[in-house]
Design a protein around this nucleic acid. Structure first.
Length: 122
DNA sequence: ACATTGACTTGTT
DNA sequence: CAACAAGCCAATG
């Protein structure tokens, strides 16, 4: 997200190995699709380090489409789990702008908007 | 180096 | 549905 200048390359280079992996996964989430923190962690090869994925979003900030990463609510349903209400509402706003619809309870249907990153061998 | 924290997840009571 | 617990891992003090 946000121009890919050399500046960004340096930024990415400075990330810890895990953050770098998370970065690589998140930047590949297409517009209008979402993934949960747990899915991102798994796709990044970090096992169940879901919290780390969330923690990383803070560090990566606007350099990645952070709004496309949500928390898991139930089976097949994702939800905004950001504690800060300002950033949380911002996330929802950005997603709705991309066409993602939220249920009355604030849930996002993963069957419809979920992004399944392809593993090796496409 | 040790303890605590955090935009998490899943299962059990 | 609410409360707990265990698991995972980098950042911070």
């Amino acid at each position: 997200m946000r121009r890919g200048r050399k500046n960004d390359d340096d930024f990415v280079r400075a990330l810890s190995q895990s953050y770098r992996k998370i970065f690589d996964v998140v930047v590949r989430i297409p517009r209008g699709r979402v993934m949960t923190y747990g899915q991102v962690a798994r796709a990044a090869g970090l096992g169940g380090a879901a919290r780390l994925a969330g923690y990383a979003m803070r560090a990566l900030g606007e350099r990645v489409p952070w709004q496309r990463v949500l928390g898991a609510k139930k089976k097949g349903i994702a939800q905004v789990t950001i504690r800060d209400p300002l950033i949380g509402s911002e996330q929802r706003r950005l997603l709705e702008r991309e066409g993602v619809r939220f249920s009355l309870a604030g849930g996002v249907d993963l069957a419809r908007y979920g992004h399944a990153p392809r593993r090796k061998t496409g």
